[in-house]
Design a protein around this nucleic acid. Structure first.
Length: 430
RNA sequence: GGAGAGAUGGCAGAGCGGUUGAAUGCGGCGGUCUUGAAAACCGCUGAACCCUCACGGGUUCCGUGGGUUCGAAUCCCACUCUCUCCUCCA
């Protein structure tokens, strides 16, 4: 949600951001026009209310209340008429009333693009910031993770389809164990880096979804039980970020760092025909999510740290990756700036996204009303929220299987995971 | 699922239909005292929005939404949530 006061103070900033995202900036003029009308109506309304309150106070102060009330009643009735009419007008225009077109415009607009986000219209314009590791050269044709997994008996897509249809997987034996090992490894590292582990609900209310910007209007991206009014989280970012909604922190409480391991549920409605094989794009996948709540002045430095925290996991696993700065046109709704981490997958001879780290500045904080005070007398200010995968478990499993595959069909377990998996090599199904 | 109790400021906890944004306590901030600290004492201490260059003024908010009334934290209705007991269950 955009800040109405910022729209008044610096409309050009909003226009510039819209243009960089590739959308028409004329809505800013519409916002200003509606806002003007709203404030006129509001001032009018409040003046009438003040008059009425004065008359009521007069009755309260009078020695003979009944008589005074009788005398003033016609005046008050007249004011009541005007008040209810003005009230309706003001309500229909207010930036916080659900029906108002002004609110619609504020709510539908994506976050303001940060200056440091590169220009560009689409994914091809994203800028590679750095890369780590050298993709391994294979003496044989590397296989895809589903070939490896099915042959080793640790991935079973056929039976998953029998149970649940397409875009599901069954992990078996060391496959299931490896997946659990990866998640455990991520959580342990997060704890070492000062992230507090949270085990959140996986079902949240519509309001919670709305607050973190996942629900704008009608979203067909998420699984929901509409009868119960509950949504399956598409990422733990949702409960972690909304955790402190409607709260005001003491300045000393910040920054806050949270990590949560959770399943994520997505309909993938817009992805028909994409990544239909294997674990890459599932209706249900697991992820360790990192969330930071920061003071505004610290949030961009925190984005660098967050991205480094995610990258360190890939480095420890020995998986080559690169970091992209998403261009303005490819940026998500909530983000002012995003770094994507892409891991090397030898079967496709390409890098694939395994983490996305975003600074959402005050955008989600405004929706969820997460604030802090610099000192005990200061006015509450909105915090900045950041989130990043640290990392997607399923895609890490893919990367491990593909990058560590051996010519004999076995897979070596990366050093960092051996303690969790309990073996150095996955050779044959038990 | 059944029965009961409750929802008030950062927290705890009062509150008669009339100047109550709300007693009191705790916490927080400032001050006096002190070499310093503690204690004691004094003062201040909720949020959102609108008008104003500013000083200042105004409106709204006591779970949410309606209603009664000139006037509602206080009365009425509906809803939501929390707690306790029973039931069920991993």
């Amino acid at each position: 949600m955009l800040d109405i006061t910022l729209c008044r103070r610096d409309p050009d900033r909003i226009r510039r951001s819209a243009i960089r995202r590739g959308s028409d900036p004329s809505f800013v003029d519409e916002i200003l026009r509606l806002d003007e009308r709203y404030r006129l109506a509001l001032t009018d309304l409040e003046t009438k209310k003040a008059e009425k309150n004065r008359l009521s106070a007069e009755i309260a102060k009078a020695s003979d209340r009944a008589a005074t009330a009788a005398k003033l009643r016609p005046q008050i009735a007249a004011l009541d008429g005007e008040i209810s009419a003005l009230d309706e007008t003001a309500k229909s225009l207010a930036p916080d009333s659900p029906e108002s077109p002004l609110r619609e415009l504020l709510v539908q607009s994506p976050n303001i693009v940060d200056e440091s986000t590169p220009d560009g219209a689409e994914a091809a314009d994203n800028v590679t910031i750095r890369s780590w590791g050298t993709p391994r050269t294979f003496a044989f044709a590397p296989q895809s993770h589903w070939e490896i997994g099915e042959r080793l008996g640790i991935l079973d897509f056929e039976r998953a389809a029998k149970l649940s249809g397409s875009r599901f997987a069954v992990l078996r034996g060391l496959g299931a164990r490896l997946s659990r090992a990866i998640a455990q490894f991520f959580l342990d590292r997060a704890a070492e880096r000062g992230y507090i582990e949270i085990a959140p609900p996986y079902l949240v209310t519509q309001q919670t979804m709305w607050r973190t910007g996942q629900l704008t209007k009608f979203s067909d991206a998420m699984f929901a039980d509409t009868e119960a009014g509950l949504y399956l989280i598409p990422t733990a970012e949702v409960p972690l970020t909304a955790l402190h909604g409607d709260e005001i922190f003491d300045g000393g409480a910040l920054p806050l760092r949270y990590a949560a391991y959770s399943p994520c549920f997505r309909k993938e409605a817009g992805a028909a025909g994409k990544d239909t094989r294997g674990l890459i794009r599932q209706h249900q996948f697991e992820k360790v999510e990192l969330v930071r709540i920061e003071r505004p002045e610290d949030s961009f430095a925190a984005l660098e740290t967050l991205t480094a925290d995610a990258g360190a996991l890939l480095e420890e696993l020995g998986l080559p990756y690169r970091v992209l700065s998403l261009c303005a046109g490819d940026l998500g709704f909530n983000a002012a700036k995003t770094y994507d981490l892409e891991v090397w997958l030898p079967s496709g001879n390409e890098y694939r996204e395994i983490s996305s780290c975003s600074n959402c500045t005050d955008f989600q904080a405004r929706r969820a009303q997460i604030r802090f005070r610099r000192d005990s007398k200061a006015k509450p200010e909105l915090v900045h929220t950041l989130n990043g995968s640290g990392l997607a478990v399923g895609r890490t499993l893919v990367a491990v299987l593909e990058n560590y595959q051996q010519e004999d069909g076995s897979v070596i377990v990366p050093e960092a995971l051996r303690g969790y998996v309990g073996t150095e090599r996955i050779a044959r199904p038990e």
